[in-house]
């Protein structure tokens, strides 16, 4: 049997790390997606290609990259962040920022170009134009947030490499599942997997309610 307290701790760590990562990645991710959708500049195409490529980064590759930065011999080794929740947050933020950026870009590209022209004709500053288009693209941006949260809470590589799967400290739902599997406790692993899905489902339902309310209110 799986003791309940460690599971509750793993759920808490999973939610905490994923939510903080999402909050940290939101501004640069959504902001860069808006900028790429609105502005035209040299190198934009190359940047978009890199971001789309980043969607396919294996989580272990991101984990390893941040590991080298934070390890004792790395440039930020002196900060002593390795095997902490902060390190996991850094890894997950890097992992999900491209999702937020590309989903937002895609949502902005689908908007009616007349909206930009109308906002400019009414004297909108650049910041107001960004905010206006973000509001228009809110369903796409909400989808980006849902997808990013799903990616963060379900990944193993970053949590394992950067968190070290330390019980009660950096152990997450996914690393517990991996551990139970390694121990041959398949039943427990399956139960935890179902629990993880249930938590994700509840959060997604919350997002969808938000989306529906916003649709009724503003359109």
């Amino acid at each position: 049997m799986i003791p309940s307290d460690p599971i509750a701790g793993a759920i808490r760590v999973s939610l905490e790390v994923s939510i903080v990562s999402l909050a940290l990645a939101a501004l640069p991710g959504i902001g860069s997606g808006l900028a790429l959708g609105i502005e035209r500049f040299r190198g934009r195409g190359a940047l978009v290609s890199i971001l789309y490529t980043a969607l396919a980064f294996p989580t272990v590759v991101v984990g390893l990259f941040v590991y080298f930065l934070l390890s004792r011999s790395g440039p930020f080794g002196s900060l002593g962040l390795l095997y902490t929740k902060t390190a996991m947050v850094i890894g997950q933020t890097i992992l999900i920022a491209p999702i937020l950026s590309t989903f937002t870009l895609s949502a902005v590209k689908r908007l009616d170009p007349a909206l930009t022209l109308t906002a400019r004709s009414l004297g909108a500053s650049r910041l107001r134009l960004y905010l206006t288009l973000a509001r228009e693209a809110r369903f796409g941006i909400l989808a980006a947030l849902i997808a990013s949260f799903g990616r963060a809470i379900s990944e193993v590589g970053v949590s394992m490499i950067l968190g070290g799967n330390i019980a009660g400290h950096t152990r997450t739902m996914t690393t517990v599942i991996a551990l139970e599997h390694d121990k041959g406790q398949f039943r427990e692993a399956m139960i935890l997997g179902a629990l993880l899905l249930a938590i994700s489902l509840c959060i997604n339902i919350g997002f969808h309610v938000l989306q529906r309310d916003s649709e009724h209110r503003d359109d």
Binding site: A114, L115, A119, L122, G123, A124, R128, R135, D219
Partner: peptide, 18 residues
């Protein structure tokens, strides 16, 4: 084209910008 929101908020848009 109108922005998301009410007729009132649309008419206010340019005034807020200024």
């Amino acid at each position: 084209v109108l922005f998301a929101g009410s007729v009132q908020s649309n008419v206010e848009y340019g005034l807020r910008c200024r």
